[in-house]
Design a protein around this nucleic acid. Structure first.
Length: 195
DNA sequence: GTTAAGATCTGCT
DNA sequence: GCAGATCTTAACG
């Protein structure tokens, strides 16, 4: 892929800034069935310090060790016995921070996504949530630790992104750290998980 | 070895 | 709007 990666730029930013910067750019997955891509419309930041909701809050374990790796790699974990969640690791090696990708707006490979989801739902509900996003994109544990600069799973810059309005809100689905405004989404988008 | 809880989604009331 | 599905991980004994 000749598209310049935005990873190099992101790797120099702090976690909160990465969460905002990712909005409007592309998440792509080159699968045997074809290319799947979508625009990131919703993210959440998870910090290592002062954030009880973060997996890394109580130290390094086998589950979250990917979060402590170098920035720009994927952190994928299994939750509720059914779903995967996809994160982009941020901060320098050993920090333990990440940005959760909560939802994307499908752009290409929509037929493949529908097939993977196994149901014929509306376009805006195809990948509007962490679990659904991973199913639609075919992301699972084998992508844990993958460098997001390279195929098959990578982030690409959206050169036509231009200016976007970002809404800041409390995170969803966490019991701890509800008071923190670490959720970011594109204002007015129909593709976010909740409005 | 055992147990409780979790960054969710779907279907039914 | 609410409860159930379903299993890995981490904390405890």
């Amino acid at each position: 892929m000749a598209v310049p990666s935005i990873i190099d730029k992101l790797n120099k930013m702090d976690t909160v800034k990465v969460a905002r910067e990712l909005l409007g750019h592309y998440l792509c997955h080159q699968t045997p069935a074809g290319l799947i891509s979508g625009i990131i419309v919703e993210t959440e930041a998870y910090l290592s310090r002062n954030d009880p909701a973060c997996h890394a809050a109580s130290g390094k374990t086998r589950r979250n060790e990917t979060m402590f790796g170098p920035p720009g790699i994927a952190y994928v974990y299994f939750i509720y016995g059914i779903y995967y969640c996809f994160n982009v690791v941020t901060g320098s090696s050993g920090t333990g921070e990440a940005v959760l990708i909560r939802s994307v707006k499908p752009v290409s490979g929509i037929d493949i996504m529908k097939k993977k989801r196994g149901m014929n739902c509306e376009l805006q509900k195809l990948a509007n949530g962490p679990g659904k996003l991973c199913i639609a994109f075919g992301i699972d544990k084998k992508h844990d630790g993958h460098n997001l600069k390279k195929e098959p799973l990578f982030l690409a810059e959206n050169k036509k992104r231009g200016m976007i309005n970002v809404t800041v809100a409390p995170r969803i689905g966490v019991s701890a750290g509800k008071d923190k405004l670490f959720r970011y989404y594109i204002s007015g988008s129909q593709y976010v998980s909740r409005r």
